[in-house]
Design a protein around this nucleic acid. Structure first.
Lengths: 241, 241
DNA sequence: CGCACAGTTGACAATAGTCAAACGATGTGG
DNA sequence: CCACATCGTTTGACTATTGTCAACTGTGCG
């Protein structure tokens, strides 16, 4: 039983230390978490990568959890399902994001490829050894996961208290932030994925997009791309977060 | 800059190791997190306790975050607010739960006493020192925070995909689990707190309680207590989680 | 070129929200 | 000890946002 522990607890720095997340690193506002393939990527040598086609399952809720995963390219969605099939998408993962970090006996959600995706599978024991050797890496992971937690709380506000238009506007702005403020964002996921992430139906998402188009706040481009024409107006609409 | 790190990473145990939560430990299904005042409570000696009256603020979203807190008795609510005043309650904390663990520069939500509450305030530097000395404590904190993260994801499913009746039933069952399955649970918070936690209005919460009473699934007792008359039927209604 | 499927639009329904009034418990002052 | 004031809760009537069901459109792929 080799247990390596690392809690970054630092009261004086602006960028946090932290006890950190278990679940996964979700698109976090601003913070790019771990760079996909930074020159000095300590995780790069671990495990091995595999390509998943569109809609393939990486792991399912309840599977025995023996590995953690890192998205190298493409996009992944994480979801939970109610017994009758209603689905809630917990988050979308981009290149650099990790998942399956819960270290629970089973995975807590299902992970599927949204687009063709390359995913690095890292057996926990390997990560274990590396974390032991590199405390700095541990802090990076912790930091990224903290961001994910903040995102989870913002998502609770969104789901519990925002209108359809506010939800969609918030969602688009998050993707925009994630891209570093670029006005053009990728929307590789379908309307039903967006709906299940925002607690709406595909029809409502579609109607909301139409309204935003009519109001000249967004423009839909070919190839699943979208342009934010009026960032400020969208931010107004989103109403915080 | 003293940074002490501890990531419990253990692939072989059923009870998790984990990179863990930043935000706070919320009522976690089943797992009692840290016992309030266990005989060998390593945190007991840190910081000092203070009593907060009903509705007093412990800290506010955006305040500089210099301490972590632990609820010793009573109940605390954590919330975020939209600019126009709409409120989302992130969670309710019971004795033993910790909050403010984000280790971010600012607190990410506001904490208020639901009832008269005793809260232990622990300066981060003190916790830091203790964590350095007792890795096992770190693992406990991490474990508790993982539970909170799972709870956060269940809450997303609840907020995004459940009906009013399902939300209320799930909420009551959670409180029941939290009490170890006792049929009688405490509801010290008001209807508007419940509403803001479940993404409903006070009126809808009230009407739902009335329906559950009529259906003989619950009984409301004096002193903010409630009895679950038919746990199974409620679980059916809650529809998972 | 046409089939298949995702997305859009429309008509209608239903769940939950809003506004308002009444009720009930709690606590204070006469 | 009772009357009254207050606040939270409950109930009612009505509204509105979002969901449902269904048809249609457009796009991409074989």
């Amino acid at each position: 039983m080799s247990t390596h522990a690392a809690i970054a607890a630092n009261a004086s720095r602006a960028v946090p230390g932290y006890l950190v997340s278990a679940i996964a690193m979700t698109p976090a506002a601003g913070l790019p978490a771990l760079q996909p393939r930074s020159a000095a990527d300590p995780l790069a040598a671990l495990g091995h990568a595999k390509v998943y086609d569109r809609d393939m399952t990486v792991f399912s809720e309840g599977d025995a959890a023996g590995s953690v995963f890192r998205v190298q390219s493409g996009m992944v969605r994480l979801h939970k399902m109610l017994p009758d099939g209603r689905r809630q998408i917990i988050g979308f993962l981009h290149a650099g994001d990790m998942m399956g970090l819960a270290f629970a006996a089973q995975y807590l959600y299902t992970a599927e490829a949204v687009t063709a995706t390359t995913i690095q599978r890292i057996p926990r024991l390997e990560l274990d050894v590396l974390l032991d050797a590199q405390p700095a890496l541990a802090r990076k992971l912790l930091s990224a996961t903290t961001s994910e937690l903040m995102a989870a709380q913002d998502q609770m506000v969104l789901l519990g208290r925002k209108t359809a238009a506010e939800k969609v506007a918030s969602f688009l702005l998050r993707l925009c932030d994630r891209k570093g403020g670029d006005r053009t964002i990728d929307l590789p996921m379908g309307r039903s994925d967006i709906a299940d992430h925002l607690g709406l139906t595909t029809e409502t998402v579609s109607r909301t997009f139409t309204k935003l188009k009519s109001a000249r706040l967004i423009r839909i481009l070919v190839g699943g791309k979208l342009e934010l024409l009026d960032h400020d107006a969208l931010a107004d609409l989103a109403g915080g977060f």
